[in-house]
Amino acid sequence: MTASVAGKDPVLVLGAMSDIGRAIAQAYAAEGHPLHLAARHPERLETEAEDIRIRHNVAVATHAFDVLDLEGHGPFLDGLDPAPSVVVCVVGLLGDQQRSVEDPAAAELVMRTNYIGPSLILEAAAKRLERRGQGVLIGVSSVAGDRGRGSNYVYGSAKAGFTAYLSGLRARLCKSGLRVITVKPGFVDTRMTEGMDLPKRLTAQPEEVAKAVIAAHRQGRDVIYVRPIWRMIMTAIRVLPEPVFKRVKI
């Protein structure tokens, strides 16, 4: 990569083809950060990369990356030049709850894609950043991980695992100068939620998520909900006693 703005940290976006990933990449580029975009299909990423170069005049590189290929995580990170000092993981898979309940393989894929893969790639990135003594790791988790609900607990439990992992990682790294940010977007108007009938007041646009991520990064926040109303909703959901909660259809 060439022509990166002096002083701006290179940012790696994992899952850069997703609507939220795209928006986060655009937002960092708008602030002048050079980018590494990673996704399973790098040939399609090139269009995204060129779009960002034209709009923001920053250096953008594209990479093939599969979060499920655990063996490949290390070599992938070591191959990035310049090494990123901000790593954002947007990888996720909603899956279909009914299918996940019936088919263990489907459930396993949801668990690996939302929990194991994202946790371990950020762990691997943390090890590399620790050597340099600075960096920011950002994990896009979900409000679904705040409590297991009958309607989507396979996805929710995987996100819960990821949220817990991020929390632990943050605690372990807090003295090392590295920061970890957990992002819980709530409903977002993306491909993943297309066709669902979502309440407008609770549904963020991908650009809002990106703005919230950048703000959290600048302000040194640890855990953010994109729309503040979600913090209240999830607090209420968390404090319901289990005998009541189990009967609530949500």
Binding site: D19, T47, E48, E50, D51, I54, R55
Partner: peptide, 9 residues
């Protein structure tokens, strides 16, 4: 709305 990329300039 999502078909919104600049392709070349």
């Amino acid at each position: 709305r999502h078909l919104d990329r600049f392709l070349a300039f």
